[in-house]
């Protein structure tokens, strides 16, 4: 029994190499999809049911909800907020685990894949995974009657951009950690949760005290929520939309560059 195919190992061009990293992460995911399906699709749907329909039944459509039933007001923002939450999780523990606990990334560093390709692959993977779960959520939301127009496709885009605006810097940060991940609970509690509560997902930001609002404007979630509602309700104006896009894109680009840097520092010492 000799190997019939005789192939030589080779150095792949960057796009192929990045895709191979995604393939590796996908192989893992295929065996463990259940938990992420629960947290990234089932949970947001439960939120939509409880807050959109249950709590929403207590709310009269008003100017604050854009004149819409609460569930329709909530859905385009909820897709952004839950993509962001999933992104926060996917960018923290799994990344630290791959460096520190399982050390699988250290194994990849011994292959022709470079640190840079590995970082890009990790980010692309998070993007693809979020695309699927966000789209699934929107389909369910549509079935529940929470979707008003095809503009919601723009919401999907906004959700992904926003999520990556958080994921990229967070992946960079996770790759630089050498702890057991205690910082992550602080990040969830002091950044992710307050963002979800205050950045306009559940109620308009102008209901907050004036001094809080500038902090809200710094969060990617607020920009994403604005974009998403603008698209879903067709209320977008050119300049604000451009502003949101630029801000979020800048975060993605800066985050990705930082991620490449921290991956390289971690692996090539």
């Amino acid at each position: 029994m000799t190997t019939t195919t005789r192939e030589r190992a080779r150095v792949c061009p960057t796009p192929t190499a990045v895709w191979l990293v995604v393939e590796g992460l996908w192989t893992w995911y295929r065996r463990n999809w259940r938990s992420s399906a629960v947290s990234s699709v089932v949970e947001p749907v439960l939120f939509l049911l409880a807050l959109g329909l249950g709590f929403g039944s207590q709310i009269q459509p008003s100017a604050a909800t854009g004149g819409l039933p609460y569930v329709q007001y909530l859905a385009p923002a909820l897709v952004v907020a839950s993509a962001l939450q999933t992104a926060a999780f996917e960018s923290t523990y799994p990344v630290l685990a791959a460096f520190k606990w399982n050390r699988t990334f250290l194994g990849i560093a011994s292959t022709p894949i470079t640190s840079r390709q590995l970082a890009m692959g990790q980010l692309l993977w998070i993007f693809l995974r979020l695309s699927v779960s966000s789209a699934a959520f929107l389909v369910v939301a549509a079935l529940l009657g929470a979707v008003t127009s095809v503009g919601v496709i723009g919401s999907l885009f906004a959700a992904l951009l926003t999520a990556m605006a958080l994921a990229a810097p967070l992946v960079a940060y996770s790759a630089s950690l050498d702890t057991e991940g205690q910082q992550f609970s602080a990040i969830f509690r002091f950044i992710v949760v307050p963002m979800t509560v205050f950045a306009g997902t559940f109620f308009p930001v102008d209901q907050l005290p004036a001094w809080v609002r500038p902090i809200v404007w710094l969060t990617p979630l607020w920009h994403g929520t604005e974009l998403s509602r603008a698209s879903a309700f067709g209320t977008g104006e050119l300049l604000p939309v451009l502003g949101h896009l630029v801000y979020l894109t800048a975060l993605v680009v800066i985050g990705a560059r930082l991620a490449v840097r921290t991956f390289t520092r971690r692996l090539e010492v």
Binding site: T3, T5, E7, A9, R10, V11, C12, G24, T111
Partner: peptide
């Protein structure tokens, strides 16, 4: 499998 793929080897190989 996964490790081999990182070396640019085909799935069949």
């Amino acid at each position: 499998h996964i490790y081999g793929r990182y070396f640019g080897l085909s799935k069949a190989h």
